[in-house]
Write a protein that binds this DNA or RNA. Structure first.
Lengths: 385, 385
DNA sequence: TGAACTTCCGCCGAAGGTCGAACAAAGCCG
DNA sequence: CGGCTTTGTTCGACCTTCGGCGGAAGTTCA
């Protein structure tokens, strides 16, 4: 039995996380002998997973050879499917984007049409990046509805007609496919990209609807049925008259979602159809719209105040279409959360707008794929094969 | 860093979890050779961690020698400190209770007095069980307030005067001491004792106050500041007049806690001081009390409905003093949760009374200690020493 | 009852992995 | 230019693990 763990997968994890860039670092961190580390690194280099760069800076002796992930030869894809759009990002193994694209695409056209479109875009992006199809190792897909993560099958999604129980991964041959809810992958993208130092994060997406992705101990929390984070249908007080498409009334989404704000603006004589119209009105300085957005922030804050007490996150990130006017939204959210949550939970809590922006979902989906590929178990399997 | 699979610690984990009771089981589960397993088991036996029992049942050949945790020579303690009571359970390494006791004890007397009392009870219980003090390997303590788990220091607990930032573990020499919130240890006790098959569990304690312990992926979720699960101060709609000791109004605890129900009964001319009095009235068949308890269940259910959407647990366990009249409390909770939560989240959700009862906290605290001691890292350290 | 069969467990030589010492490489410093 | 420091590789010693073999301990069946 080895006194310390340190399989090839562990070594690669340290390299990919940036914890170690030289063989000496690895020896120090793992406690293994330098010769053993060299052997591991050699195996990783031989498999094309790691490469050496030019020598680094000397600290008084022979300069170490820097190690990093070998970014050629592999590719990963992150796919963000929304109700009306499709974004695909091709990434290398370090998470850098090689190429990306965006189209209008109705998810309601069904899985065969949509996935064929994705497949075509993948070929195009691979071409742009100059990599063969065989380089594609894994892909992640975020979809606007609940998914049984283990099988990659949508689970009674309300706005994805034709997708229920469709085995998405089987559509793509020879590549691992991970399918998850769009808000989950956005949370993952935001966490890995801008908040990697935190352990407990909530990502709140405020668009047409309202959803939440949960990062606990650095990992996505999906819950028992994969429906965790569905905060759009939490009840808010004082709006019993607002009916929701789910059949209940006073749902958060029915009073504070982009669609709800647009409807109320229309009632006030300001024609608005979607969250985008609301954003446009706010940016044009319309005070009615501004007031409604801020009020929506307060309502969202009321729900988040409960969740802060319950979950005790370090940071809440607000994204989605309406976060383009985040100053007003966040003002309402902060006001309510800091008033209604317990001091111990809010003392070190920060509530910030998304730093990753429109690409959070595609990036997060890609990261899901990369982390799956780089998991120690999978790497050990590859190296020992 | 992933631990090396098949270490002595992993072998012991399989034995303690009941996943393997023979050397053959271990070889099958770990994939290691039978001879290697024998060597591991020998080391564990030599260290007094595992013992062989008489042969088990034959499956057609030589019957295997059964293995189990060696329950002599070690002892673990679980301590449940409440506002006005102290329970101590002495357990062997398999989690069976060897001896236990209960006293009235005011936590407000301060850490020196209370912990000295605990220390004395420990000696007494060790005497009853016929084990020397040196057999005590670790202890867990549940306290009625927030704790910084890593250091074992209470963190501004409202009902524990004199305990703020007190380094509890240092009071006990030569033994590992883990300190956690009482609701957390109750959740752990309930999960390990009665719901070990589930991954995501919420334990709701309804007593004088209201709290919640969270089990996610089989582990306690404590949050960023260790204050997760503090649902007593979540706002419920329609009770703006109810002031709470936290300074806000309409807190769940202020309208549905045992103290709140007692106060309202008193207003109705039925003198009641505590949750215990409320239970007595309900058990005596008082319809006013029954109605209030059921209404409290509805209010708790309103909050839980939100948390079910957010967290998506498999099971909600209701415990605490008021759960002695759980049929009425649960009726209100179930009614609201199943009406207000999303079908996907409630479809496989069960809401049940505590199966572990009054001892959940002390048991959970002991289990916290045992699992700490049995963690693969700790066992490998012991075996390789 | 006894022989054949099955399963369990310890022993031992072979194979393979890890370690640390020794050595070579590469840059810094006086 | 020769010592000093740090890095990386080579190699034999050592240790662990593996798997076959044989003995142990029951079951099944004639």
């Amino acid at each position: 039995m080895t006194p310390q763990p340190g399989s090839a997968g562990d070594v690669l994890t340290l390299i990919s996380a940036g914890s170690a860039t030289t063989r000496s670092d690895l020896a120090r961190l793992t406690g293994l002998a330098r010769s053993t580390i060299s052997q591991r690194v050699d195996a990783l280099i031989e498999r094309g997973l790691v490469e050496e760069t030019e020598s680094g800076e000397s600290t008084g002796g022979r300069p170490p050879r820097q190690l990093r992930l070998h970014t050629e030869d592999h590719a990963f894809a992150g796919v963000d499917l929304g109700a009306t759009h499709c974004r695909v990002a091709l990434m290398d193994i370090s998470g850098d984007v090689l190429a990306e694209c965006e189209d209008s695409l109705l998810i309601g056209e069904g899985p065969d049409t949509v996935l064929a479109h994705v497949d075509q875009r993948l070929d195009q992006l691979l071409g742009e990046a100059g990599r063969p199809r065989s380089a594609l190792r894994a892909m992640g897909i975020g979809v606007p509805g609940p998914v049984e993560f283990a099988t990659g099958r949508p689970n009674n999604p309300p706005i994805m007609p034709g997708w229920n129980d469709y085995p998405v991964p089987e559509f793509f041959e020879g590549v691992s496919v991970l399918v998850d809810n769009d808000v989950n992958v956005m949370a993952l993208g935001e966490h890995r990209n801008a908040f990697a130092g935190t352990s407990h994060l909530l990502f709140v997406k405020v668009g047409t609807g309202i959803g939440c992705g949960i990062v606990a101990e650095g990992k996505l929390h999906r819950g028992a049925q994969g429906s965790a984070g569905d905060i759009g249908h939490i009840r808010v007080s004082g709006h019993e008259d607002a009916g929701c498409r789910c059949g209940n009334s006073a749902c958060l989404e029915a009073v504070a979602g982009g669609a709800a704000i647009a409807r109320r603006l229309t009632e006030l004589g300001l024609p608005a159809e979607s969250g985008g119209d609301v954003v446009a009105l706010v940016q044009a300085g319309n005070t009615q719209a501004l007031r409604l957005v801020r009020e929506a922030g307060r309502l969202i804050g009321e729900v988040l105040a409960s969740l802060v007490n319950f979950f005790n996150p370090e940071v809440i990130v607000v994204g989605g279409a309406l976060s383009r006017v985040h100053e007003h939204l966040l003002a309402g959210i902060r006001e309510t959360v800091y008033r209604r949550s317990l001091p111990l939970a809010t003392h070190h809590l920060s509530i910030t707008p998304s730093r990753t922006g429109i690409n959070a979902a595609a990036l997060g989906a890609g990261i899901l794929a990369i982390e799956h590929y780089l998991s120690p178990d999978n790497i050990n399997r590859i190296v020992n094969a």
